[in-house]
């Protein structure tokens, strides 16, 4: 894999410096067979420092909600044959499905098999979400 450029895949740019490993975990990149590059503390005129992740696989389907929840300032570049074909800005999603889990021990999601973990955005300013089942809030 060429670190500078990938032919077909996804480049996640403008990740808040230090968050790359968290993004790696939330997007389940550990489960990928293809080459994945994590580049830390890259100089950025806008951010001072940033992290970048490159995924060298044209079939990779990125979970924008999970990324938006984790790092709403990140950008996603879709690369095909060496050129950027699409640039996506992520934002804090209104609804999160199976990204975070409810921590309320009295919530139905703790026992019901196969249930989707659904959270709804309740405060954009505070980045607060509440469980769609029991209303318990978490960031």
């Amino acid at each position: 894999m060429n670190i500078d450029g990938i032919t077909s895949g996804v480049v996640i740019d403008h990740i808040t410096a230090g968050k790359a490993m968290q993004v790696y975990r939330y997007l389940h990149l550990d489960q990928l067979e293809c080459p994945v590059a994590i580049i830390k503390n890259v100089k950025s005129t806008r951010m001072g420092k940033k992290d970048i992740i490159k995924i060298d696989d044209a079939t990779f389907d990125i979970d924008l909600d999970a990324l938006g929840y984790l790092d709403p300032g990140a950008t996603v570049n879709i690369i095909r044959d060496g050129v950027i074909v699409e640039k996506k800005h992520v934002e804090l999603p209104e609804r999160l499905t199976n990204v975070i889990r409810c921590k309320n021990p009295r919530c139905i999601t703790t026992v019901e098999p196969g249930i989707d973990q659904i959270f709804l955005l309740t405060s954009k300013e505070e980045r607060l979400y509440s469980c769609a089942y029991c209303d318990t809030e978490r960031k």
Binding site: R106, I108, T109, Y133
Partner: peptide, 23 residues
């Protein structure tokens, strides 16, 4: 006894669900 159980029920119900108390 668990909170939100009626929400889970409503996801699959083909008849109306009335919550008679969830925790």
């Amino acid at each position: 006894p668990l909170e939100g159980a009626p929400v889970a029920a409503a996801q699959v119900a083909t008849v109306p669900i009335v919550n008679a108390g969830d925790g």
